[in-house]
Design a protein around this nucleic acid. Structure first.
Ligand SMILES: [Mn+2]
Ligand SMILES: [Mn+2]
Ligand SMILES: [Zn+2]
Ligand SMILES: [Zn+2]
Lengths: 140, 140
DNA sequence: ATTCTAGTTGAAACTAATTGCGATTACAAA
DNA sequence: TTTGTAATCGCAATTAGTTTCAACTAGAAT
């Protein structure tokens, strides 16, 4: 059961318990290519260990968020979705008309981040943003 | 019952029915100084007309959003909150440590909006944003 | 190996918001 | 004024996520 990985090591070093539930959740998140939801994480785990509760998934995601080990995003599908934070920062432009998602490099928000710091002394947490609007094909 | 106002007139002109429920909801929104939640709108209405259902409030807010007559915002309090759109566009910086909210003029996001339009031909809907982070007092 | 206990979990209750459906009604047309 | 009907409403069920609390356990100490 004692599988290792970046997030697992980090949790251990910070003094959090490595429960079987946490290890499974971490494994699912780290092995997922794209944004994954709490429900999807739970479904994958329950296939092998049917007694793991969904609230444990939510609580673990809450912890990982607080420790900046995952980033969350609301792409508009009714559920919040998650990324391992160490897979690189970026953002998404979402067309409200056709649903197209355009990926956006972190650097696109750097000028805004700088302005907020300079003019308001505010350190903005802009690690994984969903910006809604209209793509080039959907402008009348 | 036939009270008038900017939003009321707009709805009428677009062919939507002016039901008593809608008029009451519009009146509460237009007479509210700050961001108001669906629950708060409902509470105010129920005080006078106890049989108005909360789902009607949600549905009306959905309609007003779609018509750009109100803007919504998630300030982190667990409920979405609403503004009449014609009371001016602006944004909010929210400190995740102490909860302080700094108001931000619309113009602060103009450079980002321009960049997205120029480089991605994407028309970003940035009318009422909540940006989370740390205020000047809460930076260690 | 056994004990201890604060951290963690499962289960059930709860909250904010959405949806399906049958009943009601605003308002246009007769 | 009355009628007809698509839009809207109330109500109940559903969904995503949070919270409470008693029971359990990872891992440190003995
Ligand atoms: Mn992403
Ligand atoms: Mn505002
Ligand atoms: Zn589009
Ligand atoms: Zn602060």
């Amino acid at each position: 059961m004692n599988q290792s990985g970046y997030i697992t090591d980090k949790l251990s070093k910070l003094g959090y318990r490595l429960t079987p539930q946490r290890m499974m959740i971490l494994s699912v998140i780290e092995n997922s290519d794209n944004h994954i939801s709490a429900e999807e994480i739970h479904t994958q785990i329950v296939a092998k260990y049917p007694n793991v509760n969904i609230s444990t998934v939510y609580r673990t995601l809450e912890l990982l968020k607080r420790l900046s080990l995952v980033t969350e995003i609301n792409l508009g599908g009714g559920q919040v979705r998650y990324h391992p934070a160490n897979k690189g920062h970026h953002h998404h432009l979402i067309c409200q008309e056709c649903g197209t998602i355009i990926d956006l490099d972190e650097s696109a928000l750097a000028p805004l981040k700088d302005t907020l710091l300079r003019e308001y002394k505010f350190i903005a947490d802009l690690r994984h943003l969903a910006i809604f609007g209209r793509c080039v094909n959907c402008q009348r």
